[in-house]
Design a protein around this nucleic acid. Sequence first.
DNA 1: ACAAAAATGATACTTTGTATCAATTGGAGG
DNA 2: CCTCCAATTGATACAAAGTATCATTTTTGT
Lengths: 146, 146
Amino acid sequence: MNRFMEQFMKSGYKLTRPRRLLLERLEDLDRPFTAEELYEMMNREGIGRATVFRTLKLLLDIGILVRVHLEEGCQHYQLAAGLPGEDHHHDRIICRFCGKITDLDECPMRNDVAAIAKRSGYRLQGHHLDLYGICSRCDADNQKSH
Amino acid sequence: MNRFMEQFMKSGYKLTRPRRLLLERLEDLDRPFTAEELYEMMNREGIGRATVFRTLKLLLDIGILVRVHLEEGCQHYQLAAGLPGEDHHHDRIICRFCGKITDLDECPMRNDVAAIAKRSGYRLQGHHLDLYGICSRCDADNQKSH
DNA sequence: ACAAAAATGATACTTTGTATCAATTGGAGG
DNA sequence: CCTCCAATTGATACAAAGTATCATTTTTGT
């Protein structure tokens, strides 16, 4: 009976075998995962597709999981508890030509977050910044072909 | 024969009836659209599903379209020419509890873009910033239920 | 231990595409 | 202008990622 199971029952849901197994697996999953990845794990223990997807939805409702939005195969899930407060972010530049992704070393939002939280009234937990452009290499290649 | 059709033929592709019709529709579409939306339009003129998706892919390759990444139903397409340079952006705060979305009135990135472009070597065209948190209302509701 | 309510899993269906392939068409060259 | 053939099309079947239905099973309050 881990912390997720308690939270689950407190929310008024029954703790069944499939749910118990799923919540056990969840403890190890510190990185974002897709529904399909989770389904494959659970299916090896005989748990059906519908149940996995239904349980994912419940966990989102309860707040144990959050959806994170990654460019590639964009529906991912992540433990809400794994989000380290305002430090959770994901900042990068994507080349619209070749798709190359460069992660930003420094977060351009670091000085703005507190002010935005104050003005907006939100308690901020993190962010996701995608800059779009043309990388230097593609830019050079395009110049040549003119 | 509009600018898209010229660019299409210059790239070595045949300008067929379905493609001509699709490129005509494209001229009006200034907002992001999904493949499905485009398919519905084209299908009314008797153009097949496969052709619409194939042509979309070609237009991405050629650079007439870019994919934009919106949270809701995340695969959208947009005219590359419609992107207004560095002014193209989309900044907002999303409540992880109720899903409420608040658009930011001022762009927190406005002062950082030039420096990032310089350091990264990318020619920046726009960005997309999602802040995540709990809105004041959900935050208050959660306090109460403890 | 029992009954009611909740949850399950098999199955069929939906949505958003992709692969196949026989039939058609655009356009380069004569 | 006409012909030919590679490129393209659309019908169809298939795939991946879910969702809806419903008869059966499991939990839990008493």
